[in-house]
């Protein structure tokens, strides 16, 4: 298992290198001269000499590979440059805003799993009866609802009408409820539906028949032979949900005035603050890739077919 984890960790390096190169190339292929954009943000008129000077400051006069290498060596040391707008080191801003985003996305992930698993079980257990139909209807609405709009509906209901919850900002746990609901609604629906389907498929597997024939009770069969196996695809799907939840958080932050990285990134996109955009993207990709790595490891740990093959391969 340790070897498996190590190998997966090493695989992160080429992926992140590839992503950073891809980003770098796209950035350089972008329309408009970054030097001019830089001068604009600094309110300096883009005279030819000013542009030339800016190009030199930004290192744009050097070959692209050299630019990448120097960017990378700085980035590895935590230096992602200076925001064109705030003039502060980008990394400081990112690290300042990131925790709030991760807090919200993490809470949403937890909520998704805690709620969707019982819903999926319930739905599968009462297949085609009313609980199942209820969950399926809910799941169907869930995958079609715009999360940011749901956010407003929640505000209308719980803040304006019922006056139970604060409509905006970050504070106690009450501030978390609506953003978490809005962010996780879709993943929750997808997950419940996926678990239901996975359980129904597993329920018709022969090992379930054999378990029943050996005299195991319904609950025991469901727990040990249906649910455990049916959860494996859910583990894989969780990796995907992390991406959706992170993305959803970025949007939802602006609905609830949540002081996270999403709003910071959007303002950077408006002002075309490239160092910020680059660093923001790289951070989120890293988080996403690492989460998927954790999911892979968890899966291998849960599924002996993969765990033992991985051990045998070493």
């Amino acid at each position: 298992m340790a070897g498996f984890i190590l190998r997966r960790l090493l695989l992160l390096i080429p992926i992140l290198l590839g992503v950073s190169i891809l980003m770098f190339v796209i950035l350089r292929m972008a329309p408009g001269d970054p030097a001019v954009a830089y001068l604009k943000l600094s309110s300096i008129p883009p005279t030819p000499s000013a542009v030339a000077e800016a190009r030199q400051t930004l290192g744009l006069d050097r070959p692209i590979l050299a630019q990448y290498v120097s960017w990378l060596s700085n980035a590895v040391q935590g230096d992602f440059g200076v925001s064109h707008v705030t003039r502060r080191p980008v990394i400081d801003d990112i690290l300042h805003y990131l925790p709030a985003t991760l807090q919200l996305a993490g809470a949403a992930l937890l909520f998704t799993l805690i709620v969707s698993v019982p819903l999926g079980i319930w739905s599968a257990r009462y297949k085609d009866r009313w609980p199942d139909q209820l969950v399926r209807a809910f799941a169907f609405v869930g995958v079609s609802t715009p999360n940011f709009w749901l956010g407003f509906l929640l505000v209308l209901l719980f803040s304006l009408t019922l006056k139970w919850l604060p409509p905006m900002g970050k504070g106690g746990w009450q501030h978390m409820i609506m953003p978490v609901l809005a962010v996780s609604f879709m993943s929750l629906a997808i997950n419940a539906r996926l678990l239901r389907a996975s359980m129904l498929e597993t329920a018709s597997a022969r090992h379930v028949l054999y378990a029943r024939l050996r005299g195991l009770g319904d609950r025991q069969v469901e727990r040990s032979h249906i649910l455990r196996n049916a959860l494996l695809p859910i583990v894989t799907a969780t990796g995907m949900h992390v991406g959706e939840l992170l993305g959803g958080t970025l949007v939802i932050e602006s609905v609830f005035g949540w002081p996270g990285i999403g709003r910071y990134a959007v303002s950077a996109i408006y002002s075309r603050d490239f160092p910020v955009i680059q660093c923001f993207t790289l951070f989120l990709v890293t988080i996403f890739v690492v989460c998927n790595l954790l999911v892979d490891i968890l899966y291998a740990w849960l599924d002996p077919r993969i765990r033992l093959n991985a051990e045998a391969a070493i």
Partner: peptide, 17 residues
């Protein structure tokens, strides 16, 4: 009644010992 099935490979739960 105890039961023995054909094709035992798929009769055992693949993730349990």
């Amino acid at each position: 009644v105890a039961t023995i099935l054909q094709n035992p490979r798929s009769a055992f739960n693949p993730i349990r010992t």
